[in-house]
Structure formats: structure tokens, C-alpha cells
Amino acid sequence: MRGGWLRIYALSYLVFLYAPIALLPIFAFNDGTVIAFPLRGFTLQWFSELTQIPALHTAVANSLMIAVITALVSTLLGICAARAAARYDFPGKRGIMGFIMLPLVLPEIIVAVSLLVVLLQIGIRLSAVTVILGHVLICTPFCIAILNSSFQNLDKSLEEAAFDLGETRLSTFRLITLPLVMPGIISSLLIAFTISLDEFIIAFFLTGNEPTLPVYLWGQLRFPQKIPVVMALGTLLVALSVLLLTLAEYFRRRGIARTGGKDTGGFL
């Protein structure tokens, strides 16, 4: 039974994918500083310790602020580019779009160092703003990829029909286009938020005196005694990611159902 063997392989592959993440909650609630089996007992100590680290709280607040602004700006830029690509033909379109999408295939370290060099050269002080600049750059291609399918799925004659029935271009956009691509916009916001919240390298290079959460985390990884706390923090982060992703997927599917399109797969 070929399918049978493949199924066993596939399931064990899923186990391989999820095994490390599964360790997070296990050791986050484990009453012991050594990360090893057998488990010692149940504790909430590591979670309560999380509430007592001011530096962590600053980092979280900083990261959230950066992620929200990044999500808004890159989704806005993504809407412009995706709409232009879906509606208009102009010379050099492929080249321009390809260039905008370039950060998808560029090693992040290169984006990070090149931005760093330029910012230092023109004398801009490193801060949350510089991190946002970098994050918007790498999030925008993901936003475009998501929004593209929303805008491409949108039947052009829907907008023409509204225009034909007496609406202006602006009110057509408000009454027809926006409601129909809204699910795409929401998942774009969520994805950009998730990427920014999780991004390390660019933040590591471009952050000033206010580290983001991953940068703070990076600093903690060196100390073995802090590992259980990191595990607790990781558990919360993974739970948040899964929640955001489920939301994003929900809105994506609702968008497809709304415009009557066909489900063509995931985010990527």
C-alpha cells in the first residue's frame, strides 16, 4: 500500500516539524532548571517571573509598536503596488515589481548591513524608526503576495458596474473594491505584524538603545539559568503566532468565499 507508507512518512514528518515546538510548553511548565526528561513537576514559576522583568516589558512594548507601524505601512505600500500590478499595464512593470519583491530572495544579513551602512553614512541615529524602515522593506513583498491574489480575484466588471450605475471612482473604491479586498488587507496586516514581531537580524543591526523582543531574547539565550523563562516566553509567542495565523487564514478563506473564488492554497 503506497499511500499507506506515504501517510506514515507524512505523519512522522509532521512530528519532526512540531517536536521542537512541542517542547516549549512541556518545559515551560516543568519545575526544574535543567531542560531534560524526565519531568520534575508542574509550576507556573517561569511565567510569573516573566512579569517581573522590566527590560522584557520594554522590549515587548517596543516590538509591538514597531510591528503595528510596520504592518500598517507595508500593507499600505502593498496595496499600492498590488493594485497597480493588477489593474494597469505600464512599461517596465515586471522589472519594477520584481525589484520590489527582491527582499524575498535576498539574504537578510545583506539587507541589514547595507541599510546599516547607509544610515550610518547619512548620520541617522539608530532607533525604533530605523528598525521599522528595515522591516517595512522585507514585509512589503509578503503583503504584495497576499494582496495580489485579492486584487487579481476581484472581477474588474464589478467596479465597472458600480461606475456604470453612477458612482464616482472614489465611491466605487469605497463601496466595492475595499469591502471585497478587506479580508486580504486584514491577513496582510496580520502577516506583516507577525514577521516584524519575529524578525531578528535586521532588528539586531538597526536597533538603537531600545532592543526589540527577539534582540532581548538573543541576549538571554547565553545564560543557561534563564532557559526556563525563555521557554515560558517562547510558549506565549508561539501561542500568539498560531492565533494570528489562524485569524489570517480565516479571513483569507472568508475573502475567497465572498468573491466566489476557488481556494488555491496557503499564504505563500
Binding site: D198, L217, V230, G234, S241
Partner: peptide
């Protein structure tokens, strides 16, 4: 896709 979207730093650390 879910594991891909969870913290890269923490996955590597794990």
C-alpha cells in the same frame, strides 16, 4: 506552514 511562522530564534534555540 504554522511552524514556519513561529519565532525563528526560538525554534533554532530549541
Amino acid at each position: 506552514t504554522i511552524p514556519f511562522w513561529t519565532s525563528y530564534l526560538i525554534r533554532v534555540f530549541l
